[in-house]
């Protein structure tokens, strides 16, 4: 288990409660991992091992599933994850230039977290909002459509201010 501080114990408790609520159902691993990532922000090895133990399956099975899906992360991510759609529809509308601008504004490489831990930038596959291409998703729910490179500083500023 993770070096325990109270916060983690709480998170583990909540995860356990969730697992109990699914008792008896088949094929729940992915649901449990969704919940775990929602709680912890990412899926450290310790959390994966914890899930394996609770569901009585091998840690390698859990790890195999975690690394298979894009949604699950084995690395910590920025507080605000900036996901830039690089699907064909967004690509032809200039998503690559939007990506470049984000990277240069924040001074990071793709997948890296900024020093203050506030942002990380990720290229993702189609987000299913092609009519608004190019599309940027910040966090889980904040969509920005028809993004131009010039809009990038404004978007970043918005989350910097919120973070304060």
């Amino acid at each position: 288990m993770l070096e325990c501080c109270e916060k983690h114990a709480e998170l583990y408790n909540e995860l356990e409660k969730y697992i109990k609520s699914l008792e008896g159902k088949k094929g729940i691993l992915i649901n449990v991992l969704h919940k775990a990532q929602e709680l912890f922000g990412w899926l450290p090895q310790e959390v994966q091992e914890y899930v394996a133990e609770k569901l009585n399956i091998s840690p390698s099975t859990v790890h195999g599933v975690v690394t298979f899906y894009n949604f699950f992360s084995t690395k910590p991510k920025g507080k605000n994850q900036i996901k830039i759609c690089l699907g064909t529809a967004c690509y032809v509308k200039g998503a690559d230039r939007v990506m470049e601008r984000f990277l240069s504004e924040l001074g990071v490489e793709e997948g890296e977290v900024t020093e203050d831990g506030n942002f990380s930038v990720h290229g993702v596959r189609c987000l299913g909002a092609c009519s608004m291409a190019p599309v940027v998703l910040v966090g889980e729910k904040d969509f920005f459509g028809k993004v131009t490179p010039d809009m990038v500083p404004t978007i970043i500023k918005k989350y910097k201010e919120e973070g304060k």
């Binding site: 699907g87 596959r125 189609c126």
Partner: peptide, 11 residues
Amino acid sequence: DEGEPGTYKDR
């Protein structure tokens, strides 16, 4: 699981 880039009809 509509993941085909360019497709958003099911959504």
